[in-house]
Amino acid sequence: MSADVSSDLTRRRLASLARIDKLAWWLDDAFRVPVINKRVGIDGVAGLVPFAGDLVGAGLSSLLVIEALRLGAPKRVWARMGANVGIDFVVGLVPIVGDVFDMAWKANRRNEKVLRRWLEDVTRNEEKSSKWPGVMGVGLGLAGAFVVTVVLWRAMFGA
């Protein structure tokens, strides 16, 4: 992979991570509850409205899963993210207990970590795998050029 393509890919991934981080913050941590000094987001507040609030929260949370699909995450990554959203939705449907769980579970922050970990692994593997084939190619090219030079030298000068 060329440096321009690699840096463009890195920029896009960083932009995606920034979007994901901001969305997860809004959905899970945007507001501080003064009495208990805990942070909740739109997902937790919306979950207070029976069923409809949980449905809205699941819809907003699915945006993170869609971002994972857009980035080309493998099935295991987006399936885990979908499971986090599903658990958040199903348990959130239970009155009172579900609302407390919804505010504590923070499915969006979990999904952000899952996606971030995958992107870091992909980037690390690309750096490892893309380095050696290029070095090997240059080395083989130089060796080939040396052999051709020696053969031509001997053919031309008979030495």
Results as ranks from 00 to 15, higher is better:
residue 146 F to I: 14
residue 42 I to K: 03
residue 46 A to K: 02
residue 158 G to T: 06
residue 80 R to L: 13
residue 83 A to H: 00
residue 1 M to V: 13
residue 22 K to S: 15
residue 37 N to K: 13
residue 115 L to T: 01
residue 153 W to T: 04
residue 9 L to P: 06
residue 147 V to C: 05
residue 8 D to C: 04
residue 130 S to Y: 10
residue 81 M to V: 07
residue 120 E to V: 12
residue 5 V to E: 11
residue 66 I to Y: 08
residue 44 G to H: 01
residue 2 S to H: 08
residue 48 L to Q: 09
residue 159 A to D: 05
residue 53 G to K: 04
residue 20 I to V: 15
residue 123 T to Y: 11
residue 120 E to A: 13
residue 45 V to L: 11
residue 26 W to A: 15
residue 4 D to K: 07
residue 77 V to S: 03
residue 150 V to C: 02
residue 105 W to Q: 03
residue 60 L to A: 02
residue 141 G to A: 12
residue 95 P to I: 00
residue 31 F to A: 08
residue 158 G to S: 09
residue 70 R to A: 08
residue 79 A to T: 07
residue 121 D to K: 15
residue 94 V to R: 09
residue 141 G to S: 08
residue 109 R to L: 04
residue 9 L to M: 15
residue 44 G to W: 06
residue 21 D to L: 12
residue 127 E to I: 13
residue 78 W to K: 04
residue 42 I to C: 07
residue 122 V to M: 10
residue 9 L to I: 05
residue 44 G to R: 08
residue 24 A to R: 15
residue 153 W to K: 05
residue 139 G to F: 11
residue 76 R to M: 08
residue 74 P to Y: 04
residue 112 E to V: 00
residue 154 R to H: 10
residue 19 R to L: 12
residue 12 R to H: 14
residue 137 G to H: 02
residue 69 L to Y: 01
residue 118 W to V: 02
residue 155 A to I: 08
residue 95 P to E: 01
residue 62 S to R: 02
residue 127 E to S: 14
residue 148 V to Q: 01
residue 5 V to F: 09
residue 1 M to H: 09
residue 135 V to D: 09
residue 33 V to G: 06
residue 95 P to A: 00
residue 28 D to M: 05
residue 71 L to G: 06
residue 15 A to R: 13
residue 138 V to I: 14
residue 1 M to I: 10
residue 72 G to Q: 05
residue 82 G to H: 05
residue 64 L to F: 06
residue 95 P to R: 01
residue 60 L to R: 02
residue 27 L to V: 01
residue 80 R to D: 13
residue 18 A to Y: 12
residue 71 L to Y: 00
residue 30 A to T: 07
residue 52 A to N: 10
residue 53 G to Q: 13
residue 105 W to V: 05
residue 114 V to I: 12
residue 131 K to C: 10
residue 149 T to P: 00
residue 135 V to K: 11
residue 94 V to H: 06
residue 63 L to M: 14
residue 158 G to K: 04
residue 134 G to C: 06
residue 138 V to L: 10
residue 24 A to V: 14
residue 149 T to N: 02
residue 45 V to C: 04
residue 110 R to L: 03
residue 46 A to R: 05
residue 107 A to W: 05
residue 143 A to P: 02
residue 84 N to M: 00
residue 45 V to T: 07
residue 82 G to S: 11
residue 6 S to E: 11
residue 84 N to H: 05
residue 25 W to N: 15
residue 93 L to W: 03
residue 25 W to G: 13
residue 93 L to S: 03
residue 70 R to L: 07
residue 37 N to G: 11
residue 85 V to P: 03
residue 5 V to A: 11
residue 46 A to W: 00
residue 73 A to D: 00
residue 64 L to M: 12
residue 71 L to T: 02
residue 35 V to D: 11
residue 20 I to T: 07
residue 159 A to F: 13
residue 87 I to Q: 08
